[in-house]
Computed example of a mutant assay.
Amino acid sequence: MNTQPSEVAPFEVTRGTSPVILGFPHTGTHVPDAVKARLNDMGRAVEDTDWHVHRLYDGLLREATCVRATFSRYVIDANRDPEGVSLYPGQNTTTLIPQTDFEGRPIWREGEEPGAEDIAERLAAFHRPYHQAIEAEIARVKAIHGVAILFDCHSIRSRLPYLFEGTLPDLNFGTDGGRTCAPEIEAAATAVVPDGFSQVLNGRFRGGWTTRHYGRPEDGVHAIQLELTQAAYLVAEEVPYDYAPEKAEKLRARLGKILARIEAVASRLAR
């Protein structure tokens, strides 16, 4: 595998030869100084980061391509519609540039909330470059295999009353009701023996904008999102959000099987 250093700060790309591309829109913690100055103490903590997710997937599929955003979702959310359309109309969710955290608490200093000009600037500087990188890798991988599979990698705290009731299952797969990938991919991802983990398909999280935007099975581009609960691999779902190696290895074994099964489906889909 050839690791390609990114020339554009908002993202990092590691290129592989597999038909599978791993997307990491929310593991970044970088906040430019000018943005940080406008965040309140809650916002500066960037607690809604998908902590350690890129570490969790590291090496699981040796030739997978990885595209990772380096900026915090509080700068702008790389998994939201650039037009600002809600992913879940009628439900609490965070916006293109979040106004609150996942607890519903304001993250900006009073009077410093981002406006239309901020959105335009951050779309150009962060959101768009990240997605241009994904688009380029999809095109490259599809040229090799005749098919590309985008696996969008996420995590979240297991209990967040502002966003959902109760406790999330450990693994939350999203295909927007089966629209973003072939049934064979959905089946391959969800058929792995649970090994003590709970899971759901198209529950509270049906796939974000990335999954819904790129998932075009009729064009040979398939997308699926996996939202993990942080309780499955962290010491605790609170500061300092430390990685728990023993817990994580059990989950990594499960994820490795899922990715291997998805990769195996690709050759059949390309025929």
Score class of each variant (00 low, 15 high):
residue 248 A to V: 03
residue 28 G to E: 00
residue 140 R to V: 05
residue 41 D to V: 15
residue 208 G to C: 15
residue 83 E to F: 12
residue 101 D to R: 06
residue 101 D to G: 06
residue 62 R to D: 15
residue 196 G to S: 10
residue 73 R to T: 03
residue 22 L to R: 01
residue 88 Y to R: 11
residue 112 E to V: 05
residue 98 P to T: 06
residue 225 Q to W: 00
residue 152 D to H: 00
residue 148 A to T: 00
residue 64 A to I: 05
residue 121 E to S: 11
residue 206 R to W: 08
residue 137 E to Q: 13
residue 182 A to K: 03
residue 99 Q to N: 10
residue 204 R to N: 15
residue 156 I to C: 04
residue 97 I to R: 02
residue 245 P to H: 08
residue 135 E to C: 02
residue 126 F to W: 07
residue 133 A to R: 00
residue 103 E to R: 13
residue 226 L to T: 00
residue 45 A to D: 14
residue 114 P to Y: 01
residue 184 E to S: 13
residue 174 G to E: 05
residue 142 K to H: 08
residue 186 E to Q: 15
residue 105 R to S: 10
residue 215 G to R: 01
residue 88 Y to C: 08
residue 247 K to V: 00
residue 18 S to F: 07
residue 143 A to V: 03
residue 13 V to Q: 03
residue 82 P to F: 15
residue 189 A to S: 09
residue 28 G to V: 03
residue 219 D to I: 11
residue 121 E to T: 10
residue 208 G to F: 06
residue 93 T to D: 12
residue 48 D to F: 04
residue 119 I to F: 06
residue 193 V to F: 11
residue 13 V to A: 04
residue 252 R to I: 01
residue 92 N to R: 11
residue 183 P to W: 08
residue 160 L to R: 13
residue 164 F to L: 08
residue 235 V to Y: 00
residue 34 A to Y: 11
residue 189 A to C: 11
residue 218 E to C: 13
residue 122 R to K: 13
residue 264 A to M: 15
residue 3 T to W: 05
residue 248 A to K: 04
residue 24 F to G: 01
residue 257 K to N: 15
residue 27 T to I: 13
residue 178 G to S: 10
residue 221 V to E: 01
residue 175 T to A: 07
residue 180 T to F: 14
residue 155 S to Q: 03
residue 163 L to M: 11
residue 66 C to T: 14
residue 213 H to M: 07
residue 158 S to T: 00
residue 206 R to Q: 10
residue 47 E to V: 14
residue 85 V to F: 09
residue 5 P to N: 12
residue 155 S to W: 00
residue 267 S to C: 09
residue 98 P to G: 05
residue 184 E to I: 15
residue 218 E to S: 14
residue 258 I to W: 04
residue 233 Y to W: 06
residue 81 D to R: 10
residue 15 R to V: 09
residue 213 H to A: 12
residue 119 I to V: 10
residue 22 L to D: 02
residue 145 H to G: 04
residue 98 P to C: 07
residue 97 I to D: 01
residue 249 E to T: 11
residue 68 R to P: 01
residue 10 P to R: 05
residue 86 S to C: 12
residue 26 H to I: 03
residue 138 I to T: 02
residue 239 V to T: 10
residue 110 E to I: 08
residue 53 V to P: 03
residue 174 G to I: 04
residue 191 A to K: 14
residue 229 T to R: 10
